[in-house]
């Protein structure tokens, strides 16, 4: 039986295990892209210089902040839409198709279009704010506005995922507890809070984890919208490693940052693996 996993193993070894080892090796060297001076071993200098520095902890904070804002947007809306769709009103299938679409679109194209829509002078979003009498926002040019904008665009693409996972969980729930609560005269909100929500917990837990991991990975949308700016306001860990490795061409230092990124995301892998094993029992 193990033979059937052989092709997967070959791919995983060649393109995951080997690069990981090479990454750790590079992180102890001074290699640069395009340099005529061959790289040499520098021990832990790269770590000292880049990882245990405000630059990296700053990028880590930015990553976590954008992730947190995103979760606060995605989950209330995603779960809310799933509850609405679950009522099976007329037209639900059409709504579901429309609401599903953003998840499948090319992030680069999505990022560019939002960049155009969020443009502070010509963008349709600021025009809308103007029209309803709110003040314009310098979306991609101000520190917090840019962070919120990135979380918004990422949420626009990932709400469908939260919605689908919740919808699938809702349709597998038994009906009788809801009936019982309703017969006892519980309001719709109390039925949701004390009956539905506890039963959704396992699926929501996995969904939150997938979303956290994917937000930590987020790259293309930020690359298109702000490239980490203004200043370093939206420079996540991924963007920082990119800038060091492929803009400043410092391979060794970028590899050290990569190892650090892998290390700080470690809790997410452990939790995920544990959740997966628990669900198999």
């Amino acid at each position: 039986m193990a033979i059937l996993t052989l092709p997967s193993w070959l791919m995983l070894i060649a393109l995951f295990a080997v690069p990981l080892v090479v990454g750790v090796y590079l992180s102890t060297r001074s290699d640069k892209i395009g340099s005529f001076v061959p790289g040499r071993a520098v021990g832990l200098d790269n770590y000292r210089r880049d990882v245990f520095q405000p630059g990296f902890t700053g990028a880590l904070t930015v990553t976590l902040v954008i992730t947190a804002i995103g979760l606060l947007i995605q989950f209330p809306i995603g779960v809310g839409l799933a509850l609405l769709l679950h009522r099976n009103l007329r037209g639900s299938a059409v709504f579901r198709t429309a609401l599903l679409l953003p998840m499948l679109l090319t992030p680069v194209a999505v990022g560019l279009m939002w960049r155009f829509m969020l443009d502070s002078d010509l963008g349709v979003i600021n025009w809308l704010l103007d029209t309803v009498g709110l003040s314009r926002i310098g979306w991609l040019g101000e520190k917090w506005a840019a962070r919120v904008a990135i979380a918004l665009v990422d949420s626009w693409q990932s709400i469908p995922f939260v919605m689908l996972m919740t919808l699938a969980a809702l349709s597998s729930l038994p009906e009788s507890p809801h009936e019982a609560a309703r017969v006892d005269g519980a309001s719709a909100w109390r039925v949701f809070r004390f009956v539905t929500l506890p039963m959704l917990r396992p699926v929501l837990y996995i969904t939150v984890m997938i979303r956290v991991v994917d937000s930590l990975k987020l790259f293309d949308i930020i690359f298109i919208l702000t490239k980490g700016g203004p200043g370093k306001a939206t420079e996540t860990m991924g963007l920082q490693a990119y800038n060091v490795g492929f803009v400043a061409l410092q391979t060794g230092r970028a590899a050290a940052l990569g190892v650090a990124v892998a290390a700080v995301t470690l809790p997410a892998y452990v939790l995920w693996l544990r959740a997966q094993r628990a669900s198999q029992r």
Binding site: G23, K217, A241, Y242, A254, G258, V261, A262, T265, Y269
Partner: peptide, 10 residues
């Protein structure tokens, strides 16, 4: 789960 950049540098 691993951010792509971690692997793409090596």
């Amino acid at each position: 789960a691993m951010p792509g950049m971690v692997l793409m540098i090596p």
